[in-house]
């Protein structure tokens, strides 16, 4: 379980999070929504202990990670698989080596097994033809799918974390990524937390919605509560959703 208890964080003098608190189970499908620069990605980084809050507690399975050392954070981080915005693939390695990277570094598997797993993972995310390509030769959608394959490579994940997985993608590729995320979660029975500013993406994928504005959580609830929310900022934000639903 993830627990945020009155967490404050600032970049220099700019306060990004102002005392946010929430609890989340690993099996939940959560969307963190809000305007760009509103501290959504900061939440992911805090969950992974990549940054330390100025104030407050962050508990992962009951352990307060805010005071842990880098080595002590390793088992905590292994509970998650993250797909950063734009994939964060290693530019100097071809696709198959990117996916093989952590298997080679952490699992110390023989090359044959690594490459057979890589092929399976790449075909699972639908980019098996890109095995030999370099990251700069991939389209935005392929980039994300390779990043998802790499996140799957290590296994034993309790929760996926996606940072803006559809940002900058055309509608077709966005749909592909959405169905891939859904499919993985259904088959593996693993929850996820998705950071996005596109309400429609969140609506298709998640059961719980956390809205952030000016560093605070202004809404935390399910689909029904979201639709019936009277909060003006939430209403403004979900306008787009009503248009999309009407279109369909």
């Amino acid at each position: 379980m993830i627990v945020f208890d009155d967490v404050w964080f600032s970049y220099g003098s700019r306060e990004v999070l102002k005392g946010i608190s929430f609890k989340a189970d690993f099996h939940e499908r959560i969307a963190v929504l809000g305007e760009s620069g509103g501290g959504k990605t900061t939440i992911l980084k805090l969950i992974l202990g990549l940054i330390v809050p100025d104030k407050g507690k962050i508990l992962i399975d009951g352990i307060d990670i805010t005071s842990l050392k880098e080595e002590e954070l390793i088992p905590i981080r292994r509970k998650f698989s993250i797909v950063f915005q734009e994939g964060a693939l290693f530019d100097s390695l071809p696709v198959k080596e990117n996916v093989a990277f952590f298997m080679r570094e952490l699992l110390k598997l023989p090359d044959e097994e690594i490459y057979s797993r890589v092929s399976k993972l790449l075909s699972r995310v639908g980019v098996q033809e890109a095995e030999e390509l370099m990251p700069e030769e991939l389209s935005g959608g392929m980039h994300r799918r390779v990043a998802i394959a790499r996140a799957l490579a290590i296994g034993k994940t309790k929760m996926f974390l996606y940072d803006e997985p559809t940002a900058g993608l055309d509608p077709i590729n966005s749909e592909r990524i959405i169905s891939l995320i859904k499919d993985l979660s259904d088959k593996e029975n693993i929850g996820f937390m998705i950071i996005t500013h596109v309400v429609y993406v969140a609506w298709q994928l998640c059961d719980r919605f956390i809205f952030m504005k000016d560093g605070k959580i202004i809404f935390d609830g399910n689909k029904e509560e979201l639709i019936s929310s009277k909060h003006p900022s939430v209403r403004e934000f979900i306008k787009e959703l009503f248009f999309k639903i009407k279109e369909y």
Binding site: L48, R77, F102, E105, L106
Partner: peptide, 8 residues
């Protein structure tokens, strides 16, 4: 960050 997440 990705390296750190995977304990490298």
């Amino acid at each position: 960050d990705t390296l750190r997440v995977y304990g490298i």
